[in-house]
């Protein structure tokens, strides 16, 4: 690559990534879904002013109609309203889980990759142990220890995300720390902390961003899984997985009770995954279009 060409490609990095993302129809669809989801979560009280948890046994298990767009559940609660309010719960869980994963996983990955040696060995062996369990099983085991509820759902799924971040960040740090500009920073007398925060972290942000988008989808799915098993957010709070779980009993005479929360979970997870895949392709300079 000639010097000048490289120069131009660097200059348009952001614009190029954006152009690539715009051309990726799946990613755009994911982004649009995500916006809809965020909008619903933010404006839930406006979209459905009533209480999503107040039962009305007179109208239990009604099929979708004009009054109840998506029907009602076994306690006569409007499924539309519960899905709308449930988006808040799942978004809260996703953000909480990602925060736990980022706050603990990224620094440990940075330390592990940068210092190497015994610290690296210790962190990596613990990571190995955590990765030996499938993510959901690990979260399930943690819930068994911590107990059910929103907070514990966030903590247990969050902990199961930590090793993923540690591995990802460590791998990226191993390549970035060999860069000449890191050596240059050492040569001008920068301390390790400064090198890690100012030079290494900004240069590993791209994979972290992609993983965060994909991880939010996984978090929602895991939370729904725990809710389905009755180990997540507890009723009467509207949580999609729990709604799906309780609707299971009426699958034959009132299939809409389980179907619509399932569709909500599917779309939310899909939006994060499509956007995450799109971001990965757009931000990776190796994929050129």
């Amino acid at each position: 690559m000639t010097e000048e060409k490289e120069h131009r490609e660097y200059a348009g990095q952001f614009r190029r990534s954006w152009a690539k993302l715009k051309r990726n129809k799946a990613a755009l669809f994911g982004g649009a879904l995500l916006l809809l989801y965020l909008f619903t979560a933010l404006f839930a009280p406006v979209l459905y002013p009533g209480s999503p948890s107040a039962p009305n046994l007179m109208i239990s298990l009604e099929k979708p109609s004009r009054d109840h767009f998506l029907g009602t559940d076994e306690l006569g609660r409007t499924i539309m309203g519960r899905i709308i309010w449930g988006s808040r719960v799942s978004l809260l869980i996703a953000l909480g889980v990602i925060s736990v994963g980022l706050v603990l996983g990224v620094p440990l990955g940075l330390i592990s990759g940068y210092y190497g040696g015994k610290i690296d060995f210790a962190i990596q062996r613990v990571t190995d142990m955590m990765l030996a369990f499938p993510g959901f099983l690990l979260a399930l085991a943690l819930v068994a220890v911590l107990g059910v509820g929103l907070k514990n759902t966030v903590i247990s799924i969050g902990i199961s995300m930590i090793p993923i971040y540690i591995r990802l960040v460590r791998g990226c740090v191993l390549s970035v720390k060999e860069q000449v500009y890191v050596e240059a920073a050492r040569a001008v007398g920068s301390k390790d902390f400064r090198i890690i925060v100012r030079h290494i972290l900004p240069n590993v942000m791209v994979p972290i961003t992609v993983q965060t988008s994909l991880g939010m989808g996984t978090a929602i799915l895991f939370a729904a899984g725990l809710g389905f098993l009755g180990l997540g957010v507890q009723p009467p709070n509207p949580e999609w997985g729990a709604m799906l779980g309780s609707g299971r009993a009426y699958l034959f005479n009132a299939p809409h009770v389980a179907t619509f929360p399932g569709v909500a979970i599917f779309l939310a997870v899909l939006s994060f995954n499509l956007l995450g895949d799109g971001l990965r392709d757009a931000l990776d300079p190796r994929f050129r279009i």
């Binding site: 490289e6 660097y10 000449v180 500009y181 050596e183 240059a184 040569a187 030079h199 900004p202 240069n203």
Partner: peptide
Amino acid sequence: FQIIFQDPFSSLDPRM
């Protein structure tokens, strides 16, 4: 005691 590096492309942090 300082150093000047060979490759002026890789010795400057692209994000600074």
